[in-house]
Computed example of a mutant assay.
Amino acid sequence: MTSAQGDKEFCETCYNKQMESELDVQLESIVQSFTVESHDGNKRTFEVHRRLDPLGIFLKAEESTIHGYRFAVHGELHCNQKELFNLLMDKTIQGVNTSNLKMHRFPNGHQTEGIAADQVIGRVEYDEKSHGNTPLVIIDGKPYTWVQFGRMVTSFEGFQMKIEWLDMTEDAE
């Protein structure tokens, strides 16, 4: 946080307490983590992070594994915080129960993972192994290299495509 007195670093809780007093908003207590079952029958545990900001209240559910699922919502400063949390839960449940990928089996027995429908929803993250030269693509809570993702889209050769970038708080449908 930068102010006239200089820069200060705060933990998430301390930052939110500071913003509560500056914005005259009282944050309600929420659960710190929850577990949901995904489309493949696996239990996924999410940590809940909250950030109070002059632009509103941001909630994020982040799977407790590296490059796992991540969902976020945004509400106005004086929104119903329980409804905002329920919106995050609904988005998380819907997200982990939607499979963007499926295994394709060929007559010769070879199988490969590919895109399940005409659309894939995921996110882009930094790939340490490529030293920032190519990103990782996170789909269904799993990381794929740019080359692996490229193999998945080869079945769409000759098709048009539309790439749309959305903030984490927006619905990607």
Rank of each mutant, 00 (worst) to 15 (best):
C14I: 09
V124Q: 10
L59N: 00
F10I: 12
D7M: 12
V48P: 04
Q94G: 08
N80C: 12
I30R: 09
P135L: 11
N133R: 13
E173H: 13
D167Q: 14
E63D: 10
G114F: 00
E113D: 01
E125R: 12
T92L: 04
L136P: 01
L101V: 03
D90K: 13
R44A: 00
L23K: 03
H110D: 15
F34N: 00
Q26T: 15
G56T: 02
Q160N: 15
E12N: 10
K17F: 09
F71V: 01
S33D: 10
K60A: 04
W165T: 15
I66E: 10
N108R: 00
V96G: 00
P107G: 09
Y144I: 05
N133H: 12
L88H: 01
C11H: 04
K17P: 01
I115D: 00
D53H: 08
E9W: 06
G6N: 03
T112A: 13
I139K: 00
S29L: 01
H78A: 07
I57R: 04
C79T: 14
L55C: 06
P54Q: 03
K102Q: 13
V48D: 02
E28Y: 08
L27P: 05
M89C: 08
L27D: 02
K129I: 12
R151K: 11
L136Y: 05
W165C: 08
T154M: 14
Q5Y: 10
Q18V: 15
M103K: 07
D167I: 10
G68E: 00
L87F: 04
N86S: 14
E63G: 07
E170D: 12
H39F: 06
H67N: 06
D53R: 03
I93S: 09
M19K: 10
A4Y: 07
D127L: 10
S64K: 12
V48W: 06
T13P: 01
G68I: 01
K8Q: 13
E28W: 07
F106Q: 14
E164D: 14
K60V: 08
L55W: 02
N108Q: 00
N16R: 06
Q18G: 04
H131N: 11
P54V: 01
K129F: 08
A4H: 08
I57K: 01
K82V: 11
